[in-house]
Design a protein around this nucleic acid. Structure first.
Lengths: 172, 172
DNA sequence: CGGTATATCTAGCTAGGCGAGTAAATAGAT
DNA sequence: ATCTATTTACTCGCCTAGCTAGATATACCG
């Protein structure tokens, strides 16, 4: 996504809403804070990937595998391909990578003898818990520091924003 | 980054803070809204990339080029390589791609005859303005809908969060 | 039982990274 | 003034991770 700051002076918006300077400043500050957090989040995510020597797709795959395990669902390569929106052929290579690195295991599917059941190894699951735990705790604490009313404000704003982002998205 | 929801039941955090159920629910809702927005944002960003037929690096490059233009700075391939953290070899290929697609032009550097000056073409700059303008406007409106006090709350929370993300990051 | 659909894998292709090495221009030291 | 070291962009060969096409084994349905 291109950075709005780069290309949009927001002049017409301000005029339309007939805001004074202080008002505009405070709105701009919100957007700046939002962007700062998003950038920091992304930087951290990339750092984490580099540390684990995984690419973005591999990371998504592990995430999905752990979520599915928690939900008690069996994951097959085909399901993984569909979820990650990559071909089944690429999924085979992805599984080769993850298996070679000791992150996942291929086992026979419990009912379908054509299919495989993919599971995350204990070691990888433990590592993930550890590396994410600290950060999640701090995020939790940041939200806990807000008063209940303030939390409502934040939730409302973020939900509002999500609706903005969700426009112009459709499935196949 | 792995999804905390997948691996962390937050039990000890709750105990430590001695929160009641309603309190915990409201904190969890904040984190959920945060994650929802981040995911929506990322999905939109990826959709936008696919639409423009550009990969993540190409997008970053255009973004930087437009920002630099606004700042009145001259961008050379070397500077671009440094900014994007890719090799100068990869940068040459990147410039080949962007030039072939009509997004940028290579011109002689105004003072250093070894170097090139990279500029975004008018057509691409116009397109970017258009495609980003709508979304930015809606984000602006979402922030404008908040009261000044509410904006302070949001800013404080996001800044707090950014500090969390920024831990454990260092340069070379 | 036979035919079609499904699930995975293999083979070969392409895109986009990288490191090493090159030619031209600049900057610096004598 | 000239010789040397550095900077700049580029070319070449290689690697990773996508893709499509096709092979193979199993499942399901009439």
């Amino acid at each position: 996504m291109l950075d709005p700051r780069v290309i949009d002076p927001t002049q017409d918006l301000v005029k339309r809403a007939s805001m004074d300077d202080a008002e505009v400043d405070s709105v701009v500050s919100v957007l700046a804070a939002l962007r700062a957090w998003r950038d920091a989040e992304q930087a951290m995510s990339e750092a984490s990937q580099r540390h684990m020597k995984l690419n973005a797709t591999d990371m998504k795959a592990l995430r999905f595998l752990m979520a599915s395990r928690n939900a008690g669902a069996v994951v097959t390569p085909g399901l993984l391909a569909e979820t990650l929106r990559i071909s089944t052929a690429s999924t085979t290579k992805l599984l080769d990578r993850l298996e070679r690195a000791g992150h996942i295991r291929r086992s026979p599917h419990p009912t379908d003898r054509r299919a495989l059941m993919i599971t995350v190894t204990d070691a990888t699951r433990t590592d993930a818990r550890e590396s994410v735990g600290r950060i999640h705790a701090r995020r939790f604490e940041a939200a806990a520091r807000l008063s209940p009313d303030e939390r409502e404000v934040v939730i409302r704003f973020l939900t509002d924003l999500s609706a903005v982002s969700a426009v112009d998205e459709e499935g196949p």
